[in-house]
Simulated scan of single mutants.
Amino acid sequence: MSDDPKTLVSTGWLAEHLKDPDLRVLDASWYLPDMGRDAKAEYAESHIPGARFFDIDEISDLRSDLPHMAPPPEKFISRMRAMGVGDGHQIVIYDGAGMFSAARVWWLFRLMGKTDVAVLDGGFPKWRAEGHPVEDMPPILRDRHITVQRQAALVNDVTQVAAAAKLGDHEIVDARSPARFRGEEAEPRPGLRSGHIPGSKNVHYRTVLNDDGTMKDTAGIRAAFAAADVDLSKPVITTCGSGVTAAILFLALDRIGHLDHSLYDGSWAEWGMYPDLKVETG
């Protein structure tokens, strides 16, 4: 894998740069309830030296009924300043699953106009397996100024996705498991219908990853999209259960140089809730 501080860096790259004064490392671990893991407790016990904990559920739009929707820019600014993350920093984000929720926070920084941000390839499991240092001390935080410029083109709401589904001018790509996509397995969130957005294609997020939680090379990523019959000459909207694993596909599209892709923030948590929106199964 080639290191790119704007998308994905290796554990070796991070180990080499860990003491850089302008590096900021974020632990963005987040788990579904059925995973039985406590991200905050795990962070308190052990994390990459200097890492700050990024709470996906708290640094979100709490006015929304939907889970962890992107926060308003003002809230993002205040949380990042308090965490000592700001302008001029190279940010590296990881999670405790290898590659699960880190890409969501990477996308969030991109949404806010920050581009010197990368996901740690293989995450904390790979870092630990290779014997790199860990600590249990919280970092010393100093306020840091941060400017943001929200990039509206990187996010979609339900109206835009419904229009895209109707017109067929975008590829809507769903990162959920094939069984959930086909409507054969119940959704983890109660009260949601089963199935998928009409006309959407299924690229399970794991198909762009290797067994060790690292991202496949560009040929492997392209093959995963090709296997699902995704036309990459079209703009792509990524979606999933609640906008977390959709960001893995967004990152994968960035890695292969795809130029026009966005993320449906409400994802199935929103689409599956409204009876007037059509659902396909099978």
Rank of each mutant, 00 (worst) to 15 (best):
I172T: 04
I172M: 08
I172Q: 05
I172H: 01
V173F: 00
D174N: 08
D174I: 00
A175P: 00
A175S: 09
P178D: 08
A179D: 14
A179R: 09
A179M: 13
R180V: 03
R180K: 13
R180M: 08
F181R: 07
R182A: 15
G183D: 13
G183V: 11
E185C: 01
E185Y: 01
E185N: 05
A186C: 01
P188L: 11
P188H: 09
R189K: 10
R189E: 13
R189L: 12
P190E: 14
G191S: 06
L192Q: 12
S194E: 15
G195C: 07
G195A: 11
G195H: 01
S200Y: 02
N202V: 08
Y205Q: 06
Y205R: 00
V208T: 15
N210F: 05
N210Q: 15
N210C: 12
N210S: 11
D211E: 15
T214D: 13
M215A: 13
M215G: 04
K216C: 00
T218D: 15
A219Q: 12
A219S: 14
A219Y: 04
G220I: 09
G220P: 02
I221P: 01
R222F: 04
A227H: 02
D229I: 02
D229H: 10
V230S: 09
L232T: 07
S233G: 14
S233Q: 14
P235S: 09
I237D: 12
C240S: 10
S242G: 15
V244M: 12
V244G: 10
I248A: 04
I248H: 04
I248E: 03
L249F: 04
F250W: 14
